[in-house]
């Protein structure tokens, strides 16, 4: 069978085109998923905090421990590149041969970790400020330098923090640290400068597995709100009554 030049070009074009279209479909879908907040992009001045209640769902089963969220957070928020200074971090849990749960902290400066061939199973738990509705850090701050916004995010007043570190001690999730460059306590803000412009937090956007989803609990159509209604989600250390706004799926007993 002979193929004319025209036919050849047509077949090649269709093949290449098909591959490109097929290949870009999931990419487009992913981009759509992660950037759909862009559609609602609003003027920051017009942002009305009362219309939002921000929340995050973390799917532990999806996290592969790639640490992209950690780098994205560091770059987006200009966090100093030091192992113990982080707004978000990973915890790597392993079920050892004797059945005990072993935990280790993975920060953005870690380049990797040694696999333990004897362990029976393992998983990662991405963590960040839990944006509690009843935040211990806000209660203890002597000068109201940390506060909860109307849209449910815990922020710092850079001008008022005296650096007493009481909030760092009081936070049950270890989500706070003293920033040596600003000399005030630093923490995750859900990327407040982004979410008020209709963008998702940097860690949400960076995750290649969609392990972190972000949404507005006051928006009836919001997938995060829908999942909260439909699924059995958990929070970390619920007994403390902090009412976190970061929810987890598949949170195992022993994760703290």
């Amino acid at each position: 069978m002979t193929v004319s030049r025209r036919q050849f070009l047509m077949i090649s074009g269709l093949t290449v085109g098909g591959v490109v279209v097929y290949g870009s479909l999931p990419a487009a879908l992913w981009l759509y998923q992660n950037n759909k907040l862009d559609d609602e992009q609003t003027d920051p001045a017009a942002y009305q905090a009362g219309k939002y209640q921000w929340a995050m769902i973390v799917d532990i089963e999806k996290c592969i421990g790639c640490r992209r969220c950690l780098s994205a957070c560091e770059q987006e928020n200009h966090v100093p590149h030091e192992p113990e200074l982080y707004r978000t971090w990973l915890e790597r849990y392993e079920i050892a041969a004797d059945g005990s749960l072993q935990a280790e902290l993975i920060t953005k400066t870690d380049l990797g970790f040694e696999p333990d061939n004897d362990s029976l199973n393992g998983f990662f738990v991405p963590k960040l400020c839990q944006q509690c509705a009843n935040p211990p850090c806000v209660s203890v701050c002597p000068l109201n330098a940390t506060f909860r916004t109307d849209d449910g995010v815990i922020l710092m007043d850079q001008e008022r923090c005296i650096g007493c570190k009481y909030c760092v001690v009081a936070c049950p999730y270890g989500a706070r640290f003293l920033n040596p460059e600003t000399l005030v306590v630093d923490k995750c803000t859900f990327c407040y400068h982004r979410i008020t412009q209709g963008l998702p937090p940097a860690c949400v956007q960076a995750c290649p597995r969609g392990a972190r989803s972000f949404g507005n609990l006051l928006e009836p159509e919001d997938p995060v709100r829908q999942r909260l209604l439909d699924e059995s989600l958990q929070v970390i250390r619920p007994s403390l009554g902090t009412k976190p706004r970061v929810y987890y799926t598949g949170l195992r007993e022993g994760v703290r």
Binding site: E91, A103, E104, L105, V125, K127, P172, Y173, G174
Partner: peptide, 8 residues
């Protein structure tokens, strides 16, 4: 004794 997920 760490309050986060770290044994060390």
């Amino acid at each position: 004794s760490p309050i986060v997920g770290q044994d060390e």
